[in-house]
Computed example of a mutant assay.
Amino acid sequence: MKIVAQVKLLPVSAYDADALAATLRTCNRAANVASQVAFAKGLKRRNVLQEAVYHRIKADFDLGAQPAVRVVKKVCDAYATVKANVRAGNYGPPGSKSRAWVESKPVVFREDAAQPYDDRILTWNLDARTVSIWTVAGRVKGVPFICSPEAMRLLASRKGESDLVMRDGMFFLYATIDVPEPPVSEPDGFLGVDLGIVNIATTSDGEIMSGRQVNRYRKRRRDLRGKLQKKRTKSAARALKRNRRREARYATQRNHIIAKKLVHTAERTSRAIVLEDLGGIRQRVTAKKDQRARLHSWAFAQLGAFVEYKARRAGVAVVHVDPRNTSRQCSECWHTHRTNRVTQARFACRSCGIVMHADHNGSRNIAHRGEAAWKRGAVNRPRATAR
């Protein structure tokens, strides 16, 4: 499986930083020219597009041979992504960008968009923790980088491309790592996980991972943004720029912690993880005005992605099930009625009388559905291996 290791570059001079920024601007301007040609002439395959624009972008933008090749590949990859998203229907919520609108315009690259590098134009020195990187001003050698110990360990097996990214004036390299994926074990049980806004995750074991801290933090950030936006001063604008992405980083960290905990529990008990398939839930659910911000900032897809890739690295199976009526169905007698869900936190079955936490009841239903799907063969069953 492929995962990404992030390192932060520390340019030793302002000249090096300007060279890196100029490289991104130049490569993305060249990519926009190639994108216009690809759209106008229908040249979406790499070989035919490279033949049409290679010499032009080399001469017009003073690119080397390999950077020009990387620019062409970036354009082709972008059109392949657009095609895949349109085919899957992922081109915007209802009423926004239609399929015809998406297909009627060429792909446009921002001037600070990421630029891919390969081993011919980027050399890593892991012992010295430096890189030698091509720029439009010439190759810049001995650029230091810093990263986490885990990223450093992964970089030892790095192969393939790395992306140069500029974010808030800082430069990063995202290196793609191909790590061995262990075979998935045959589960001895199923750990149901109910995802929510009030409680981010609740397991069928009864463990509740509350979202109160995250929701309070998000509310504070929204209130702060509102106050700064009303001021409309230069200092307020600087504060907004300084604080942007902080909320997203905080939520991402929480999702990493929760995903790691879920996978560790499943691995320790030899169980599979069962998640709800919540795709399109924002379009299906009607939220009150004061609840819309919480609904649309709910990072359930990110948490699910974190659980999946961590589970794959640990050899833990992941099953997705239909979430309909999991909050209304009794996990003991299977009686389903909307009045069973008394409040957000309380479930009381009208048939058998059992009372429990509503999210715990939902997670138990999810675990039962995952087990049934596994027995029916509705999921890809792994080869059984000794643990």
Score class of each variant (00 low, 15 high):
P144G: 13
R46P: 00
G169F: 08
R350N: 05
D223W: 04
L10T: 04
T252G: 07
W298D: 12
S210L: 09
R324M: 04
G206I: 06
S270D: 15
N215C: 06
L295Q: 08
H256R: 11
L49V: 09
Q36L: 13
S162A: 15
R350Q: 06
F172C: 08
K105W: 03
Y91T: 03
S363M: 03
V33I: 12
D277L: 09
K261F: 09
L240M: 05
A22M: 04
T81I: 12
K74W: 03
G226F: 06
I281A: 10
R232C: 10
Q253W: 06
N361I: 02
D188N: 13
F347T: 00
R238Q: 10
R87N: 13
W298G: 13
R218A: 12
L122H: 05
G196R: 00
R282V: 08
F347R: 00
P116R: 10
Y174G: 10
E332D: 14
T343V: 05
R242Q: 15
S363P: 03
S162I: 14
A80S: 15
P11G: 11
A31F: 01
K58H: 07
L122I: 12
L24Y: 01
K159A: 15
K260E: 05
G192L: 03
T202E: 02
R56K: 14
A372C: 02
V131D: 00
V285N: 02
I273G: 00
H335L: 09
R139W: 13
E332A: 15
L49D: 03
M1A: 11
P187C: 01
C349Q: 04
R25L: 07
V136G: 02
K44N: 06
R218D: 10
V48R: 08
D168R: 15
V12T: 15
A251S: 14
S331V: 06
A84K: 13
R29F: 02
R387D: 08
D118T: 14
S327M: 01
V179M: 08
E103P: 02
C147I: 11
A386P: 12
Q229S: 14
L278R: 03
R242L: 14
L275D: 00
F145G: 06
R153Y: 13
L173F: 07
M152I: 11
R292P: 00
A358Y: 01
H357P: 10
S185W: 05
A5K: 04
A22R: 08
R268F: 02
I57N: 03
N199A: 07
R324L: 07
R70Q: 12
V131A: 01
A65S: 15
R129S: 14
A52Q: 10
Q329R: 15
H337L: 02
R364Q: 15
S331I: 06
G196W: 00
